[in-house]
Structures are given as C-alpha cells and as structure tokens.
C-alpha cells in the first residue's frame, strides 16, 4: 500500500518540544519529566515550567532513561548515570573514529 503524497515533518530542535509533547513522546506522565528535571537528571533544570523547551537530545535521553528505569526497575539516578555513560561512550567513539581518520 503506497501513499503517493509526501509527508513533510518538522525538524525537532528548530521547533522544540513542549513539556506535554516530550512526555507524550516518551509515554510518560508530565510529572515524570518534571521530577527528573528538578533533580537535575534531564535538560538544564530551569525552574520555569512555562519556558521549558526540549531538543532532540532531550527526547533521546528521556526515552533512554525511561527504558532503563522500566526494564531494570532502576532508580532514576541510576538510569541517568547509565545514560550519562552511554552518551559519553558514544561521544568518545565518534571522536575516536574521526581521530583514526586523521592519524592513519
């Protein structure tokens, strides 16, 4: 079944997500997001909910934290710690690949 017309979406980051949109995209309650922002586990911890806007990175991070919490019954802090390490690992791998290209 082919849909002929072309679906044009918006690029998250240029248009950032609201709190509700982020929560919905992660299948969590908004409180889940708020608690993790207030405890500094997610985004930059701005105290004004109304101005909270979320990027692609926040979305990836929130979904990963949620999966880790759910699948391992992990405390939010532990899931955030594992997420920090996964992100750091990905950053280093990508820098390593670029460096290998440079050095060999």
């Amino acid at each position: 079944m082919t849909q002929q017309n072309i679906a044009s979406g918006e690029l998250v980051d240029e248009a950032t997500l609201t709190l509700d949109e982020l929560a919905r995209a992660c299948s969590v309650e908004t409180n889940w997001v708020i608690e993790r922002i207030e405890s500094g586990l997610l985004a930059d911890g701005s105290p004004y909910v109304a101005s909270w806007r979320f990027t692609s990175h926040d979305l990836t991070r929130a979904r990963r934290m949620y999966r880790l919490e759910r699948d391992f019954e992990a405390a939010p802090e532990l899931a955030a710690l594992a997420t920090d390490l996964i992100e750091e690992n990905q950053r280093l791998k990508s820098r390593l690949r670029a460096a290998e290209l440079r050095d060999t």
Partner: peptide
C-alpha cells in the same frame, strides 16, 4: 500489523540523532 509505506521528506541540514516529527502519523 499492516505494512504502511510512507514517503518522507528529509529536510536539508539534519544531523545524526535528530528527530523529524510527522504530526498525525
């Protein structure tokens, strides 16, 4: 489950890890 084929416009300037949001899809 049903296979649903979608033609998606990839905007210029996307980065790895970035999301495209398709409303209502």
């Amino acid at each position: 489950s049903r296979a649903h084929t979608l033609n998606v416009r990839i905007p210029k300037g996307v980065k790895a890890g970035q999301h495209i949001r398709l409303s209502g899809q």
